[in-house]
Design a protein around this nucleic acid. Structure first.
Length: 199
DNA sequence: TTCAGGATGTACT
DNA sequence: GTACATCCTGAAC
């Protein structure tokens, strides 16, 4: 399995955000694997981005993971009930990350469905299938990602990203860009075209 | 199919 | 006390 190496995560945040599209986020749950193709990302660059939790070098217990060298997971709790997962990027001290906003489930359907809805995958309604992991809070629930995985090394065996996944054929895609979602408070930064997604 | 409202903990003022 | 990188439900169209 061609796990993305540490060096990849040290690259420019916008590059990582684009390159992650079409890759597979893999989560080990016991002996089983859950994998989803990444369909939507957003870049957050601490030095210049008012929407970033680490804007202006703000270092708190929550944000300290963002200042680690690229290649670990930054998972935070939001709105009292959801988690969002980010990939920390660039060298140590930068405070940059890429938010994973959407996944297409590729493997581990049954266990993911239990994490997400507590039901078997084949029993899910079409509405639930369509909205299974197409949002940051949703995909964390499907992959059972919580603060327990905050800071997890993405080059380890519990949580990692690959360019291909066994038994899955990569389909072609086109990258689209847009404004980021849910950051209306961020003044000029809300207009940055730092959201990337594929069809 | 779209939309308003509520749930709810943590970080920060 | 307030805002938050969200999602679900139920009601109206």
């Amino acid at each position: 399995m061609d796990k993305l190496p540490k060096d990849f995560y040290l690259l420019d945040t916008l590059t990582v955000a684009r390159e992650l599209l079409g890759a597979y986020l893999v989560r080990r749950a016991g002996e089983q694997l859950i994998a989803g193709r990444i369909t939507e990302t957003e870049a957050y660059i601490g030095a210049i981005d008012k929407a970033c939790h680490a804007y202006g070098g703000r270092l708190t217990p929550r944000t300290k993971i963002m200042f680690e060298p690229g290649g670990c997971a930054y998972i935070y709790f939001i709105y009292g009930m959801y988690y969002c997962m980010n990939v920390v990027t660039e060298p140590e001290g930068c405070g940059c990350a890429v938010l994973i906003r959407g996944l297409d489930l590729a493997a581990g359907h049954d266990i993911a469905a239990r994490f997400r809805y507590g039901e078997e995958f084949e029993n899910l309604s079409s509405y639930r299938l369509k909205n299974f992991s197409n949002g940051p809070g949703k995909l964390c629930k499907a992959l059972n990602l919580t603060k327990e995985q905050n800071g997890e090394d993405l080059t380890g065996s519990l949580l990692y990203i690959t360019k291909t996944f066994p038994g899955i054929t990569n389909s072609k895609y086109t990258i689209h860009t847009g404004k980021r979602i849910g950051i209306g408070y961020a003044e000029e930064a809300q207009h940055f075209m730092w959201r990337f997604f594929i069809k």
